[in-house]
């Protein structure tokens, strides 16, 4: 990838080593991906909420699976694992049994989204000042 810049340090809650390998220093592309994440995650999360409210466990599992992939592209590898566990539970538990896991997932997703918003603005600033 072009546009290689050095010196940008990702938030410590993100897997910085993986992001460094994924973007290879291309902070312009990182900015694009973070922007796309913020555009897409509300759409996919709405599917999660709808499936949970409708007690549709197969769709709930599939929707969380999609979110899991998105979290990976912005460096939330630990949240990916949490999604994977939740996805697995969707095939063996009832919605009632998943309630606490679901609440935890919402909490972690909100926090992740907030961090990515901050990282996106930091990337924009970084790229702007180095452009």
């Amino acid at each position: 990838m072009q546009n290689i810049r050095t010196g940008f340090v990702f938030d410590e809650s993100l897997n910085a080593a993986f992001l460094a390998e994924l973007f290879e220093g291309d902070t312009i592309y990182a900015e694009t991906v973070f922007e796309d994440f913020l555009r897409d995650i509300p759409v996919y999360w709405e599917r999660v909420e709808t499936a949970y409210n409708n007690k549709n466990l197969p769709v709930l599992g599939t929707s969380v699976h999609t979110c899991k992939t998105l979290f990976g592209y912005v460096g939330f590898t630990d949240l990916q694992e949490l999604c994977q566990q939740f996805e697995n539970k969707c095939s063996v538990n009832t919605v009632e049994e998943l309630r606490l896991d679901y609440l935890l997932l919402i909490q972690r997703k909100e926090r992740a989204q907030h961090i990515i918003e901050k990282e996106y603005y930091r990337l924009r600033q970084f790229n702007g000042s180095n452009g």
Binding site: V33, D36, F37, D40, T66, T69, L70, Y73
Partner: peptide
């Protein structure tokens, strides 16, 4: 691929 970010990558 149904996830745009993944396809873009």
């Amino acid at each position: 691929e149904d996830i745009q970010i993944a396809a873009d990558f």
